[in-house]
């Protein structure tokens, strides 16, 4: 079963609410057919508003246009857009069974009974909840509810699937399981999907591309890899993962920092850059390194996270391998590669 993806285009879509709040600055955006696009940002950044515009739950300000393929859907309310939507709070109908919920959209579309049953069974199987078919919604766990919500949204073969923080209400382990499942599902169906989240790990795992938003504007659009490794600005760098700030001076082929010097191949002058925790390494004996003191060390299982002061003007967050014995108070020598630096324009 494959739903051919729909291409979505937004042109000049702004949103000002009745009370005068500008939730979204004019936005131009194209979502490729079959792509999973993730809107990422802190609360109030406009990501949910954008999703609601695409859904048809909100109308853009005058001039804004929304196209599904070549059809202008700007004036269509959500009922007529044929979108599937998954909500953070599930929005399942408590008066219906699991199967009843999944069949609802098909009933509205007057799909014949036999076909409806077949479709519901297919959805139940796809979400691996066949045994829950006759349960009432009250009897389901959070993870099961979100599976039902996905099945219900997909049962009507929507043109696009819209997910509004679908995993936020679930606990960590379940969140990860369901995230993997959603990822597999979206790839298999080839449906165009828009996913809103404030969780950067979720965004990177699921998104073909990520749109990082801040204060109603797009801060950066790109593949997860690009967003992480080449953040456009301070905001993006800070919001996605942890970031260290470095400011030093390059003189005569040496980078001078408070913790010492490293051989450096760049013209003389001040250096301002950012660095991810995993780009910092413990220097091997005999090789150049910057000396610092460990203020705190957290063993995280797959790695250990150190806070090291004395190396740079500000304490550095360092991800070190899990096998090295390090504790607070220890002296460490750190090094990093020039190409790991993230230039910061502002």
């Amino acid at each position: 079963m494959t739903t051919p993806g729909t291409r979505i285009r937004l042109t000049g879509c702004a949103k000002t609410f009745a009370d005068g709040t500008r939730a979204l600055e004019p936005l131009d955006l194209e979502v490729n057919a079959g792509e999973t696009l993730v809107f990422l940002g802190p609360s109030g950044c406009g990501k949910t508003t954008t999703l609601r515009l695409i859904a048809g739950l909100e109308m853009p300000d005058a001039c804004g246009r929304i196209l599904f393929d070549d059809e202008d859907v700007t004036a269509l309310p959500i009922e007529k857009r044929n979108v599937g939507m998954v909500f953070q709070s599930y929005a399942l109908f408590p008066n219906m069974s699991v199967a009843g919920n999944i069949a609802y959209g098909l009933k509205i579309r007057r799909v014949p009974e036999a076909e409806r049953r077949r479709r519901v069974a297919e959805m139940l199987e796809m979400m691996r909840i066949t045994e829950l078919a006759d349960r009432s919604i009250d009897q389901l766990s959070g993870g099961q509810r979100q599976r039902v919500a996905l099945a219900r949204a997909l049962a009507v073969e929507p043109r696009v699937l819209l997910l509004d923080e679908p995993l936020t209400a679930l606990d960590a382990k379940l969140r990860e399981d369901l995230r993997l499942e959603i990822d597999r599902l979206l790839r298999r169906l080839g449906i165009t999907a828009i996913y809103v989240t404030h969780d950067q790990a979720e965004a990177m795992a699921l998104g073909d591309r990520i749109v990082v938003m801040s204060k109603g504007k797009v801060a950066q659009i790109g593949r997860p890899r690009d967003i992480y490794l080449k953040p456009a600005d301070r905001f993006v760098a800070d919001f996605i993962g942890n970031i260290n700030r470095l400011s030093g001076m390059v003189r005569n082929g040496l980078l001078e920092l408070p913790g010492g010097t490293l051989p450096w191949d760049s013209p003389d002058g001040p250096l301002q850059a950012a660095l991810r925790p995993e780009s910092l390494r413990i220097a091997e004996d005999g090789l150049p390194g910057l000396t610092g003191t460990v203020i705190s060390a957290f063993f995280l299982g797959d790695r250990q996270r150190l806070l090291v002061e004395g190396v740079a003007p500000e304490p550095l967050i360092v991800d070190a391998p899990n096998r090295i014995e390090i504790s607070a108070g220890d002296t460490v020598r750190l090094t990093f590669d020039a190409d790991a630096l993230i230039p910061l324009s502002h």
Partner: peptide, 20 residues
């Protein structure tokens, strides 16, 4: 006591008109 808004939005997303 029920989340009326989300419930209705859920129904709308599935194509339900107001009487439905």
């Amino acid at each position: 006591s029920i989340d009326l808004k989300t419930l209705e939005e859920g129904a709308r997303s599935l194509g339900a008109s107001f009487p439905h």
